[in-house]
């Protein structure tokens, strides 16, 4: 890794590490929630389902700056929710890497839910019925039938959300700013470098690293999905 640190310089390397760290957290934290929301949207009929659907998709269509601003208004240090989190759990979001993770998670959430929901809608409920008549509990049916059958979609959703998190810029810079070593992610670093005359070569190196991470994520998802691919529907 030291050659990479040398290649990118201390600030660039820190930005890369932070981006990966933030994106992993964002993906890991939103995955359980995305599975649940996808299940609600695909399988349940309830009042407010359409509202939930719109709220989930909002980050996809809102300008990222608006999302970042709304986060700041909701989770800022003086906002009631931000104060509550700080006092109860010691959790500070605004201008911290945790905030960057939250912003990345929210921006990637619609993509993750969409992919998982699509996969879930392709799982035949008749197979779950068959599992029920064989004596499997609901939890067991979900873990041994539903989840394995939608696994490729879950992986695709997670990779999409991860890639989105790596590239997230607008909401992040609005919510947590662009503090080198603390909240400066790859895109923020590239943006900052491009503002300084003569720093273009370093910016270009970060661009290469960003591209490499994106390609690696795609390849990894292909391998995982292929390994987990179920046979044709019976």
């Amino acid at each position: 890794m030291s050659w990479l640190a040398q290649y990118l310089g201390p600030e660039g390397f820190a930005a890369m590490r932070l981006s990966i760290w933030v994106s992993l957290w964002a993906t890991a934290l939103s995955l359980p929630l995305a599975l649940w929301v996808a299940h609600l949207l695909a399988r349940k009929r309830f009042l407010g389902r359409e509202v939930l659907n719109i709220v989930v998709h909002l980050p996809l269509v809102l300008p990222p700056v608006v999302t970042g601003y709304l986060l700041l208004v909701t989770f800022g240090r003086r906002a009631p929710l931000g104060q509550f989190l700080q006092e109860s759990f010691g959790l500070i979001l605004a201008f911290k890497w945790t905030g960057a993770a939250l912003a990345a998670a929210i921006m990637g959430f619609p993509l993750m839910v969409r992919a998982i929901r699509l996969a879930l809608e392709n799982v035949d409920p008749k197979l779950e019925e068959a599992a029920a008549t064989l004596g499997a509990s609901r939890a067991r049916i979900y873990l041994t039938v539903t989840l394995p059958l939608m696994w490729p979609g879950v992986i695709a959703g997670a990779v999409l959300a991860f890639a989105k998190a790596i590239g997230e810029f607008g909401a992040t810079i609005t919510f947590v700013s662009n503090i080198p070593g603390q909240t400066q992610t790859l895109p923020s670093a590239i943006y900052a470098l491009l503002q300084i005359p003569g720093e273009e070569p370093l910016a270009f190196r970060l661009v290469i690293v960003s591209t490499a991470i994106a390609v690696l994520a795609l390849v990894a998802s292909e391998i995982l999905a292929r390994r987990a691919r179920p046979g044709d529907a019976s």
């Binding site: 064989l134 004596g135 509990s137 019976s234």
Partner: peptide
């Protein structure tokens, strides 16, 4: 789950991600 009925459906409804042996033993394992 709690009726202890064996149901053979018109379209088999085998679990596509499991082998025949795993399909067969699904009930007792569940």
């Amino acid at each position: 789950q709690r009726r202890r009925v064996g149901y053979v459906f018109q379209e088999a409804r085998l679990f596509p991600h499991m082998s025949v042996a795993q399909n067969l033993t699904f009930g007792p394992r569940a």
